[in-house]
């Protein structure tokens, strides 16, 4: 298939960027979206042009590195996938595809389609962990009885790969789905409850300081999340935050 691509090009963080049009031809419908990008880049290199910078790593939907806002949606029009799992059969011959970086003040563009997602790291560092003494006589986690439902919900929250699609899809650039998943995965388990109050306070404070917007419950994040993280987590984070603030 032949496609017209409108891609955001930006030389560096301080440079002014713009949408640039490219044509690609003979794209197989069996290719992944990133393979199509590779072919485009090979063509650019052959012509002596600078290839388009985009994030990718595992290419099997696990690492959360690949981003790309494709035709107005994070990871493209399909549901429950990352961009590396998006295939060209989703598109039709002659289509025009818009490819943009995640847009949020807290995710500044580094180059072309690559954004700096360190804001998520800093939120994690503010409390997304449990303090365990690993002196050698650590208690076996399996010795603590945990209800199956709590373990399952915690595991569901822990499925978050921190890709940032929630922020990219949100009209407010809110990071609450990400933060709530990280808060929930610990808050649901006895090991995490010990530091639950400090964790939620510190992580929410860091989230606000990073300049993410405020959640207005549109639910776009839940729809666009490649790992199906539920809005229930945001409600849980709100409860945890209220509990931590009042008590």
């Amino acid at each position: 298939m032949n496609l017209t691509l409108k891609i955001w090009r930006q030389k560096g963080p301080q440079e002014k960027g713009q949408m640039v049009e490219y044509k690609v031809t003979d794209i197989s419908e069996h290719m992944s979206f990133l393979e199509m990008m590779d072919i485009l880049n090979e063509g650019l290199v052959a012509k002596g042009e600078v290839p388009i910078a985009f994030d990718h790593d595992c290419r099997e939907g696990i690492c959360g590195m690949c981003s790309l806002h494709i035709n107005g949606e994070p990871h493209g029009p399909d549901r429950g996938i990352t961009t590396c799992q998006l295939h060209m059969r989703t598109f039709k011959d002659g289509d025009t595809i818009y490819i943009e970086p995640w847009r949020a003040k807290a995710f500044p563009v580094i180059k072309d389609l690559i954004v700096d997602r360190m804001a998520f790291e800093r939120i994690q560092q503010a409390g997304g962990y449990i303090s365990v003494n690993t002196s050698g006589n650590t208690q076996d986690a399996n010795a603590i009885p945990i209800p199956k439902l709590d373990a399952d919900l915690s595991m569901d929250a822990a499925a978050c790969i921190g890709c940032g699609a929630c922020v990219a899809s949100c009209k407010n650039s809110s990071a609450m789905l990400f933060v709530s998943a990280k808060v929930s995965q610990f808050a649901l388990l006895p090991q995490g409850k010990v530091e639950a109050a400090d964790r939620v306070r510190n992580m929410v404070k860091q989230m606000d300081d990073e300049g993410f917007g405020n959640c207005t419950n549109t639910g776009a994040c839940e729809v666009e999340c490649p790992k199906g993280i539920s809005l229930e987590n945001i409600a849980r984070m709100n409860r945890e935050y209220l509990k931590a603030s009042i008590i």
Binding site: G17, G72, E73, P77, E100, K105, A106, G211
Partner: peptide, 14 residues
């Protein structure tokens, strides 16, 4: 919180 707008934003999809 979004200082640069998307050229294409399909909010109705989600």
């Amino acid at each position: 919180a979004r200082n640069v707008k998307y050229a294409k934003f399909n909010g109705a999809a989600s």
